[in-house]
């Protein structure tokens, strides 16, 4: 069991390394993407300066916004560096590339997740750390931020996996599901204060941005270690859930082969 995990880990590391190397083949193009993503993220601070200028009476602070953007950008960035492959799941299912992973003695999901990376994601990750540390330059913030960037990256990848696993049951909903996978990131760059009611429930359940960003921001603002534990537990739950869903989907794939219309 232990050696199995060790071997899987070794392959995954190699796979991530090779994906990253591939994205860096053209160095200038890579650096350019990273830089512009960084600038693009940074310009949203202008948006918040404007919002805060008309927000007298509201419970919003620049520090909160910086933490929010830091964790969201960082988690999204890390997720798309290490697990970018999950976004390719529909393509892999349709093109039959999934078959190539099925004949390998390793976890299909992990192999796919680590098979791709995104250049601009490095810009997101850098930006994430930068703003968090601007907001509060301390070792404890750095450690907390690192923890939540990792849990956020994992939760987000699991969320995308769960959504795309639904496609094993009918590939026809590809566009709809793809739209749904983008929802957490849309909400993740706005503070939770502005949302209420049913929506807030959704953001802590189906679209788990609450656990990716909102709770971590609370921890950064209040140092509440209990909330940090809840986030970690939820991350574990998501990992298990994602594997269960994906394996159910694979089973379905093996019995129907979705593309049966083109036998």
């Amino acid at each position: 069991m232990l050696t199995e995990v060790k071997n899987q880990f070794k392959v995954s590391l190699l796979s991530i390394k090779y994906s990253i190397l591939r994205s860096m083949i053209n160095k200038s193009s890579f650096l350019f993407s990273v830089l512009l993503m960084f600038i693009s993220n940074a310009s949203f601070l202008v948006q918040w300066i404007i919002i805060l200028s008309v927000s007298d009476g509201a419970d919003l602070s620049m520090k909160q916004i910086l933490f929010l953007w830091g964790i969201m950008a960082g988690a999204y960035g890390l997720s798309n560096i290490i697990f970018c492959g999950v976004h390719y799941l529909p393509q892999y299912i349709i093109s039959g590339k999934l078959d190539a992973y099925l004949v390998q003695p390793k976890s299909v999901l992990i192999s796919i997740a680590t098979s791709q990376t995104s250049m601009s994601a490095f810009g997101d990750l850098l930006y994430g750390y930068a703003v968090v540390l601007i907001a509060s330059p301390s070792v404890i913030t750095f450690l907390y931020a690192s923890l939540f960037i990792i849990t956020g990256a994992i939760i987000y990848a699991c969320f995308v996996t769960i959504m795309y696993s639904l496609l094993f049951f009918s590939i026809n909903f590809r566009d709809l599901v793809t739209t749904l996978t983008r929802i957490p990131t849309s909400f993740g760059t706005y503070p939770e204060n502005i949302f209420s009611g049913v929506l807030k429930v959704l953001l802590y359940t189906i679209f788990p941005i609450g656990f990716i960003v909102y709770l971590p921001v609370r921890v950064l603002l209040t140092n509440n270690i209990l909330i940090a534990l809840i986030v970690i537990l939820f991350t574990i739950f998501m990992v298990v859930f994602a594997f269960v869903m994906f394996n159910m989907g694979l089973k379905r794939y093996s019995s129907t082969n979705l593309m049966n219309a083109r036998v």
């Binding site: 919002i51 008309v54 927000s55 007298d56 009476g57 509201a58 419970d59 566009d175 709809l176 739209t179 983008r182 929802i183 849309s186 909400f187 706005y190 204060n193 502005i194 949302f195 209420s196 929506l199």
Partner: peptide, 28 residues
């Protein structure tokens, strides 16, 4: 059909701004 779906994304943006402005107008 695809365009209809992509409006969902736009609609979500609009909705987020609705929530944001509602909060800003009501809090002050």
């Amino acid at each position: 059909k695809g365009m209809f779906l992509s409006f969902i994304g736009t609609g979500i943006h609009i909705f987020i701004f609705f929530a944001l402005w509602k909060y800003l107008y009501s809090s002050g």
